[in-house]
């Protein structure tokens, strides 16, 4: 029983630890003072106004969003055929292909970012939207792959074969049978991909410029020199956006992966 109580205390403390910084940021973004204060002194939304009046923030916001959308789109287009190949075929080098496509999950992003900058320099691609895009596609593709692959089960395969037996052509079968079955995996993978692209700093920082900047890189450069309520306001926006996306995800696919246990 003591162990149980102890676990409860540690767990609740850990939850508080996870929530505290987010609460502090949102609180600090509402302060009326021109310096950062928590608890906030007075309540105002003026720092959000300052943000929307600053064209560099607006353009960074647009760059980040376009980049994340494009990277997710390309990643889905590449990951779906790749996962079909990996799930359906036994071929020489299958393990190598699978580890190659998954490896960005464990590789240092700093290394890949530096590599793309250097590589891009040789081809006149460096510090451009395209340079950012290809890097982001590489790092977000494993997320799509990882959520689509488990859905391509033997049972799912049986339906696919049934469709082929009934005379369905491969493309028809794909769009009418396979796609509806793996849609959930594509959606959750795509959301993870979008978010990972949207919050990335380590990879983007090498190929961004003051004119072509993403929100996280802009914040990173800013926060190293100045801490003020505007930066808390940008942060607060990203936290609220993340929370909304997660609640949406939870309603769509159910995030509670910890309740699978059969109750006796």
């Amino acid at each position: 029983m003591i162990a149980r109580l102890l676990i409860r205390i540690v767990a609740l403390a850990a939850l508080a630890y996870l929530v505290l910084p987010l609460v502090v940021i949102i609180g600090a973004s509402l302060t009326e003072t021109s310096y950062l204060a928590f608890p906030p002194q007075g309540l105002t939304l003026k720092w959000f106004g300052v943000l929307f009046d600053d064209p560099s923030y607006v353009s960074a916001f647009i760059t980040s969003t376009l980049l994340a959308l494009a990277a997710t789109g390309v990643a889905v287009l590449l990951a779906v055929p790749a996962s079909l190949a990996l799930a359906r075929y036994v071929f020489a080098g299958r393990a190598a292909v699978s580890s190659l496509l998954m490896s960005p999950l464990v590789l240092p992003y700093v290394v890949l970012g530096a590599a793309l900058l250097q590589f891009g320099n040789d081809f006149g691609l460096a510090r451009s939207f395209e340079a950012l895009l290809v890097g982001h596609v590489v790092i977000v593709m494993p997320f799509v792959l990882r959520s689509v692959l488990p859905l391509l089960t033997p049972e799912q395969r049986a339906l696919e074969e049934a469709s082929a037996d009934l005379g369905g052509r491969p493309l028809t079968t794909f769009f009418l049978v396979v796609l509806p079955q793996i849609r959930g995996g594509i959606v959750s993978g795509a959301l993870l991909a979008f978010i990972s692209s949207w919050i990335n700093v380590e990879l983007s920082i090498f190929n961004t410029t003051s004119a072509l900047n993403t929100i996280p890189v802009k914040m990173f450069n800013y926060v190293q020199y100045t801490i003020d309520p505007t930066i808390a306001a940008v942060s607060a926006i990203t936290i609220v956006a993340a929370a909304l996306v997660i609640i949406l995800l939870d309603l769509l696919i159910g995030l509670d992966m910890l309740s699978e246990r059969q109750q006796p």
């Binding site: 939850l15 929530v19 987010l22 919050i199 990335n200 996280p216 990173f220 997660i246």
Partner: peptide, 19 residues
């Protein structure tokens, strides 16, 4: 609780370190 654990994962390292 699961949502609380996932929200930080969906927020940039910058934001969390800044906190």
């Amino acid at each position: 609780c699961v949502i609380l654990i996932v929200v930080p994962l969906f927020t940039s390292n910058i934001v969390r370190s800044f906190g």
